[in-house]
Amino acid sequence: MGDTDRAARIAADPRYGALLQRRGRFTLGLTAVMLVAYFGFILLVAFDKALLARPIRSGGVTSLGIVLGFALILLAIALTGIYVRRANRDFDAAVAALVRDHRA
């Protein structure tokens, strides 16, 4: 039996289908969070430039837009970290179990 046969057996395993569904729901949720945050920021840029131009302190030079843009970058990094942690903890372990069970 070759790698193609083993891959076909793994793909036919109901645990693999469940894993794909769990991972898909999780990634869809993370994607939705990022898209809402990003498009919210873009809509502010398009429709409320005055709000984004306000300094965060009176007399300061750093605007709210800079802070929100930086927060958007940090959100992307945080969501990536959340995905990596979950993938390493749950998804990779489930794939390893499937491969081990179909090793023969």
Rank of each mutant, 00 (worst) to 15 (best):
P14F: 09
L19P: 12
I82L: 15
G24N: 08
L19Y: 10
G69H: 11
G29M: 05
A53K: 11
Q21H: 11
R54W: 10
L44I: 04
A32W: 14
L30M: 03
L19M: 06
K49R: 15
Y16M: 05
V36S: 08
A46Y: 12
L52V: 02
R6Y: 08
G65L: 01
V33W: 10
A94N: 01
G17I: 02
L44F: 13
I77N: 06
V99M: 08
R103N: 07
A32H: 11
V99G: 02
L44M: 11
F47P: 01
A78C: 03
G2F: 08
V36E: 07
Y38R: 14
A104Y: 13
A11C: 06
T62S: 12
D48Y: 06
D3Q: 13
A37Q: 02
A71W: 08
L20C: 08
F39L: 13
G40T: 02
R54L: 06
G69K: 06
S63I: 02
R103L: 08
T27R: 13
G81N: 04
A53I: 07
R6S: 03
I56K: 09
A11P: 01
G60M: 04
I10C: 02
G29S: 06
F70N: 14
F26Y: 14
I10V: 04
G17K: 03
L68W: 09
F47C: 03
L52P: 00
V84T: 08
A7N: 12
R57Q: 15
I82G: 07
V99A: 08
T27H: 09
G24W: 05
L52M: 04
A8C: 03
R89G: 05
R103W: 11
L79V: 10
R6G: 03
A18R: 02
H102E: 01
A12V: 06
I66V: 15
L30R: 01
I10P: 01
R9V: 04
L79H: 04
L44C: 07
A50T: 03
L44K: 04
I42P: 09
L20T: 09
L52E: 05
G60Q: 01
V99Q: 02
L74M: 11
